[in-house]
Amino acid sequence: MELEVLILIPVSKPRRGATGETGLWRVERPIIDEGKCIKCWICWLYCPEEVISEGQSGFPVIDLSFCKGCGVCANVCPAKAIKMVRE
């Protein structure tokens, strides 16, 4: 009798939120002041989490489902347009 053989391979598929809604880790939330933003995209460049993208208004928007609230964006912003506020 032949065995029915299942080959199980530890292969994972890419997806957003692979570790879950990492936004829940956040203690402080970044708020962008569009009045000050110069659209230099330095925040996007340094964001460790890839959560900054261009919104419909052309300004950066932050995906708060995954933003871990590190504040690197606020720290590097040359226009001081990002404020971190307590959740």
Partner: peptide, 20 residues
Amino acid sequence: GSYLPGSASCPGCGATIAFR
């Protein structure tokens, strides 16, 4: 890039900036 938001990295991870 090949980095998707919502990974297990610590907040403020330098290595993920490098990878992005």
